[in-house]
Amino acid sequence: MEIPDLKKKLMDSVNEIWKTVFRHGFKDTPRNRALIIISNVWLHLHPAQVREHGTKIRFTWCMGGITFFVFLFELVTGILLMFYYTPDVNKAYADMADLMFVVPYGRLLRNSHRWAAHAMVITVSVHMLRVFLSGSYKVPRQFNWVVGVLLLLITFLLSFTGYLLPWDQLGYWAITVGMNMGRATPFLGYEGPFSHLLGVTINNDVRFALIGGTTIGAPALLRAYVWHCIAIPLIAAALMMVHFWRIRKDGGISGRL
């Protein structure tokens, strides 16, 4: 057999195998460019074609995308941290110290999880600013803005619930500040205005529900942990699904008509 023949045979079989995985050939043709997007479960979040200005950093500032990516980064580092962390008042702080001083790459893991959390709060705020300034919340995207506001709230709550987990002075008193506000909720907090009208006391108000007791102790740590690692990420993921789906249903990235 001639060498070029062999090469062609080889490429053909590679292409066959490639197609079983990706459902399209690897030649760079317009058709394959489209198929790369629409035949891939992850990439087909995108349409196969987008309006050109939507790919420009000067339009989106890339902030929604980066917020999403930082969220994924938090999922990965967060799952790894869960291997080492116990939500127990007698262990949590020691686990943190272990991460910082004993666990290989533990310090990098914890640091990057913390800084990425701050980064997400910043990028989501900047994303909101971009969407506001480009008027992208106007018809027909009003509802996606509302979903966005909920995501903004969720981002704050994700970060806030994580703050208590190291069980150090910093987190403990920060959550105390927060809960002192919670107990002042009108009607629903035991120190809030008009709470006596509903018979609200220290052991049945919102603060009690949030921290599972009248002081910040073991139940508060467990609740923060469950909210932080399970409940809020699930809510966030669900809202993001709606958010991304709506971007497409609302006609793709906004722009001059």
Binding site: V70, F73, L108, S112, W115, W167, D168, Y172, T176, V177
Partner: peptide, 28 residues
């Protein structure tokens, strides 16, 4: 993120102690 995390440590203060309030105690 990795570069920043390599050089700057996330804060970790002493073990929490309900009897000794931080002054000032600050929210995030």
């Amino acid at each position: 993120l990795l570069f920043y995390s390599f050089y700057v440590d996330a804060p970790l203060s002493e073990l929490s102690d309900p009897a000794h309030a931080e002054n000032p105690a600050k929210a995030p």
